[in-house]
């Protein structure tokens, strides 16, 4: 079986914007770093689109909670972004100190997706918070996460702020390199957090490789298997949710970004996307 080697995960990058979901992503990153002996990098991106907008003479926003119009300008938006960055940094520092994890913080300015992609190219695992509804720009996965997932590279961990790492794990198993990598990673997460593992097969029925069973036995991981007829990530996600899973591991290799987004919509927990390369 081709598996992910957690010991090769040395650097976990977490996208921070001080929102509840990004803080959940931070907590997950720190926990994974403890388990895998990795270091954490917090990345805060000052959205250049936002700064351009704020430079426009007619820049006006509608308050999230008040619904009131407010005139805006660049210095004010810069100050707000700076405050957000400081809060994100403080959260990172406290979390890292508490769990004794090596951590660094970086602030960059640019297009969010491009900046994150650039940073994530150097990371073994990316964790980012999941967009909150309904008071944000609507999205099942979050536009940034969706864009990153479309890159189909490395590992992307999308965390909802309600999910804890110590939750039952589900994985969609498919007979491919990425599928084996996803299964190995799911097994590792379940083992390290003493949680049961649900292995879901979709479409054509597949046998679980014996080495997976023997490893589960070795690691004392309780394994259950499920099969869904349709090879549809959203169906798999719905089944995983019904089974009580908090983490769903998917190989991003064979699915379109739309399919992944549908899966994310059907699954309210944390989504761990396994790309075609990486550790």
């Amino acid at each position: 079986m081709t598996t992910v080697s957690p010991e090769k995960i040395r650097r976990i990058t977490v996208a921070l914007d001080a929102s509840a979901s990004s803080l959940a992503a931070l907590e997950a990153a720190i926990e994974l770093a403890v388990q895998w002996g990795a270091e954490v990098e917090g990345l805060f991106v000052e959205d250049v689109d936002l700064l351009r907008w704020a430079s426009l003479p007619f820049a006006t926003e509608v308050g999230h909670h008040s619904g009131e119009f407010r005139k805006q300008n660049r210095p004010e938006v810069e100050r707000q972004l700076q405050a957000l960055a400081e809060r994100a940094h403080a959260h990172l520092r406290h979390a890292a100190e508490r769990r004794r994890v090596r951590a660094s913080f970086r602030k960059v300015q640019g297009n969010v997706v491009r900046a994150l992609r650039a940073a994530f190219a150097e990371a073994d695992l990316v964790t980012l918070g999941r967009g909150e509804r309904p008071r944000t720009i609507p999205s099942g996965l979050g536009s940034t996460a969706r864009a990153l997932a479309a890159g189909r590279r490395g590992l992307v961990f999308v965390i909802s702020h309600r999910v804890r790492l110590a939750s039952p794990v589900a994985v969609l198993f498919e007979d491919s390199a990425a599928g084996h990598r996803a299964l190995g990673l799911a097994m590792d997460v379940a083992h390290r957090n003493a949680q049961p593992l649900a292995i879901v097969t979709a479409g054509q029925k597949r046998e679980i490789p014996p080495e997976v069973r023997s490893r589960a036995e070795h690691d004392s991981v309780e394994v259950r298997t499920y099969h869904v007829r349709r090879e549809d990530p959203s169906r798999v996600a719905a089944v995983a949710h019904e089974m009580g899973a908090g983490i769903l591991v998917l190989s991003a290799e064979h699915f379109s970004s739309e399919a992944i987004e549908e899966a994310a919509t059907a699954f309210p927990g944390a989504l761990l996307l396994v790309g075609h390369s990486g550790p």
Partner: peptide, 17 residues
Amino acid sequence: LRTPVGLAFAPLREGEV
């Protein structure tokens, strides 16, 4: 756009504000 405290509109050119 999602600003730190609200929502706003901006003209786009080639996908960027």
